[in-house]
Amino acid sequence: MTRLLSIEDLAVATGSGRPLVRGVSLTLRAGRILALLGESGCGKSLSLLGALDALPPGLRRMGGVVALDGRPCAGRELRGGIVATVLQNPREAFNPLLTLRAHARETLEVRKAEADARLASALAEVGLDDPAVPGLLPGEMSGGMLQRAMIALALIREAPFLIADEPTTDLDPVARARLMDLLAGLRARRGLGMLLVTHDLGVAARLADEVAVMQGGRIVETAPTARLFAAPAHRHTRDLLAAHAMLCADDRPPAKTATVGAVA
């Protein structure tokens, strides 16, 4: 049984050698949620893709070890079967010419009927149980549906780890709250180890056991959630918290209460 996925000292650079991510270390544990916080452009997405050896053309991984229960692994061994990934932008993460069902069959190397059955149960798990959904093209689904469909696709291979890149961006507060419930439920039911990349401190506060804060391509602080929020050690973390507090005071109740209200 897989329990521990560790990323050690990961670095990503452009083809010309300009470093974009340096010395990133993160540890995922079964049944635990790690949140990765950081402002836009600090290198969160590239860290994930780097760990999976799936960097966009033109970027290179410069080092670092990804280990599964202590055994170093290439990205190819991890992708899909061990680590399921939900990409940042669900609207563009589907081939516009393929239905959801075709997407599911592609990832699963099983008979079609079996793949369809697994897709149906994964879709039910994320709350998309309308029987028409598997036959829809991406253009026929809303952003929130795509977001959930993406998570369903990530689930069908029953990988022990899930990486979700900003799964709540672009969602309205109700959908956002439902998604958080979904993720919490997945952890509870399946014991998934998760890495949640987010700008949203509310999501981190509600779901994460541990939070890592990133700035300028480096991890500047990693701490258990409660401690990080109560006593942030790094200046950048304090700035992030302060900015969030200001936003919350301005225009909406703190994220935690909003969520609880919407869930009930």
Partner: peptide, 19 residues
């Protein structure tokens, strides 16, 4: 096309390069 997000998505979902 190879820079499209859905190609990346297929890749992180474990689809092989040729596929």
């Amino acid at each position: 096309l190879k820079r499209q997000d859905y190609v990346l998505a297929a890749r992180v979902a474990g689809t092989g390069r040729l596929m």
